[in-house]
Structure formats: structure tokens, C-alpha cells
């Protein structure tokens, strides 16, 4: 029984570590599928974190916190979308600038919230189900954002590959010229994808300040935006692989801590490197296989669309 308890504990901790990555990752995946590389994930997560904390702190409602986290991320994505879509600005440079802007803005707006405990997102509690040993807590005892993250993955997976609109979005990402010639509104599709990405990144940040650690401090995203970016490549732009990746990256970090606590010799620096090493490994593998590469990598990723009249 003690063994089960520890396994349950590990899974519960992994879920918390993986959820912000998954939320931010699924949004970025959609944006990249539409051909827009948004390196500003870290900044959008940071404003999402402060937005979520502020929303919950000012109204006393964590639901408002979730909504304001998503809105904050979405708002920050607006100038990015305008610059890279309408003005065809360089996506890499604009994205990096967005990260700096987001971190700075979050620090500015968050100043008055430092040193104050926040509200914690309540966990689901269904009498009879949540108390089932081992599985109960894991399946029926999570907070809203964990369920939202899975719903989003399922919805996006269905949307991208089972709907006409999803096909259009992928067409825009694969060849914006052809899509344009077919009459697909490239700008509108990209705007929607980027705003969705910002909203998801905001939710990921909100998860940090509402569920993971209900507090606000500057730079509390601590590089999770970059891991989420790597995750999208690791998942080779497929939603369900994103789940695998997020939970794998989360599990590696948590198991690393467990190994340390048990006195197993592991280098904590090496553990911190692992998500990026894994991403490089996946890149190497998919780059060797031209078919896989062509099948999933959006061909127009990072390329601005300037319609030839």
C-alpha cells in the first residue's frame, strides 16, 4: 500500500508540473500549424500568471482568475499578431521582443501583489469517486485547468484533422500562397491562431499563479515558456504527442527530485538539460526522415505572408 501511495504522490506532482507546459504548448502548436512561430510564449505566460493572480485576488473568484489569465495572454498576443501578420515583421525578432515585453509588463503590473498569498484553484471532489484508492485522486481530484488542458488537446486534435476549418488552418501553415489563391483568408486564420495561442499561454501562466504555487513573484515562469516551445517541436506538431511530451518532461524533473531524496546520485543540472536534449534528439530523428518531416512540419512556419496582387 505504501508503494501505491508513493506512486500516486508522484503522478499527482507530475500532473502539476506538466499542465502549464501542456496548456502553453497546445496554443503554440495551433499558431505554428498556421505558420506563425511565436517565441513570445514566456512573456505571454508571465502576463497570464499576473493576470490570473490579479483577477482572483481582486474579485475573490478563481474562475475570474482563469478568465483574466487567458485574456491577459490574448491581449499581449495582439501587438505580436499585428506586427508579424499585417506588417510582415520578422517573427523570430518580434517573438523575442514579446518575451521581454511580457516579462517587463508582468513585473510592472504585479508589483503590488508581491508577498501576498493568492487564492488556490479548488480541486474537484466527487463523493465516492475521488476517494477511490490510487486512481480516485488522480482522475477525479484535479483542478479545472488540468481538465481544460486535456479537453483542449482533444478539441484541437479533432479540429485540426477532422474539420474543414482545421484543414484550412493547416493549409495556411503549409502554403500560404496556395491557400490565398483558394480564397482562404490567410490573415484572419493567422490572427485567430495567434490569439488562441496567446490565450492558452495565458492559461498556462495562470496555472502557475493559481494552482501550482498560489503566489506572484517576478519571473515566476522561470523558463517554462521555452520548454513549451521545445515541446511543440518534440511533439512534431501533433496534439497527442504533446501530452506525452509534457508529462515526460514533467516526470523527468519530479523523478530527478525523488532520486535525490532517496540518495541516488543524479546531477540536477543534467536533469534541467533533459527537455532540451530530448528535443534535439527528436529533431535529429525527424530531420533524417524526410517523410515524417514533410508530413507534420508546417512548411510556411516563420515565413511572413505578403500577398502578390
Amino acid at each position: 500500500m505504501a508503494d501505491f501511495a508513493i506512486v500516486t504522490a508522484i503522478v499527482l506532482t507530475v500532473i502539476t508540473a506538466a499542465t502549464p507546459l501542456l496548456l502553453a504548448g497546445i496554443g503554440e502548436l495551433v499558431a505554428e500549424r498556421a505558420g506563425v512561430l511565436n517565441l513570445g510564449l514566456e512573456g505571454m505566460m508571465a502576463v497570464g500568471a499576473v493576470g490570473g493572480f490579479a483577477g482572483a485576488a481582486l474579485t475573490g473568484s478563481t474562475t475570474v482568475g482563469i478568465v483574466s489569465a487567458g485574456l491577459a495572454g490574448l491581449l499581449l498576443a495582439v501587438p505580436f499578431a499585428f506586427l508579424v501578420i499585417n506588417l510582415a515583421a520578422n517573427q523570430v525578432a518580434t517573438g523575442l521582443a514579446l518575451t521581454l515585453l511580457g516579462l517587463g509588463a508582468s513585473a510592472m503590473f504585479g508589483e503590488s501583489f508581491i508577498g501576498k498569498p493568492g487564492l488556490k484553484l479548488p480541486a474537484l471532489d466527487i463523493p465516492g469517486l475521488t476517494s477511490i484508492p490510487v486512481v480516485g485522486r488522480i482522475v477525479f481530484g484535479q483542478d479545472a485547468l488540468v481538465y481544460i488542458s486535456f479537453l483542449l488537446v482533444a478539441a484541437i486534435s479533432w479540429f485540426l484533422f477532422r474539420t474543414r476549418a482545421g484543414l484550412m488552418l493547416r493549409a495556411v501553415g503549409d502554403s500560404h500562397d496556395s491557400a490565398h489563391n483558394l480564397g482562404i483568408p490567410v490573415y484572419a486564420v493567422r490572427w485567430a491562431a495567434v490569439l488562441f495561442g496567446g490565450c492558452c499561454a495565458g492559461l498556462g501562466g495562470g496555472y502557475l499563479s493559481l494552482a501550482y504555487t498560489p503566489l506572484w513573484t517576478e519571473n515566476m515562469t522561470a523558463g517554462r515558456g521555452w520548454i513549451a516551445l521545445a515541446l511543440v517541436v518534440f511533439a512534431s506538431w501533433l496534439p497527442w504527442r504533446l501530452v506525452v511530451g509534457a508529462y515526460l518532461f514533467g516526470a523527468v524533473a519530479i523523478l530527478g527530485f525523488h532520486a535525490q531524496g532517496l540518495g541516488v546520485r543524479v546531477s540536477s543540472q543534467f536533469i534541467s538539460m533533459l527537455p532540451y536534449l530530448a528535443t534535439i534528439a527528436v529533431l535529429v530523428v525527424i530531420s533524417r526522415n524526410k517523410l515524417v518531416l514533410r508530413a507534420n512540419t508546417p512548411a510556411c512556419l516563420g515565413r511572413p505572408f505578403v500577398p502578390a496582387r
Partner: peptide
């Protein structure tokens, strides 16, 4: 400084 990691630990 990484509240999330500190919490995990």
C-alpha cells in the same frame, strides 16, 4: 528562484 520547482521539491 523558481516557485514551481521549489514547490515540486
Amino acid at each position: 528562484h523558481d516557485p514551481g520547482k521549489e514547490a515540486d521539491a
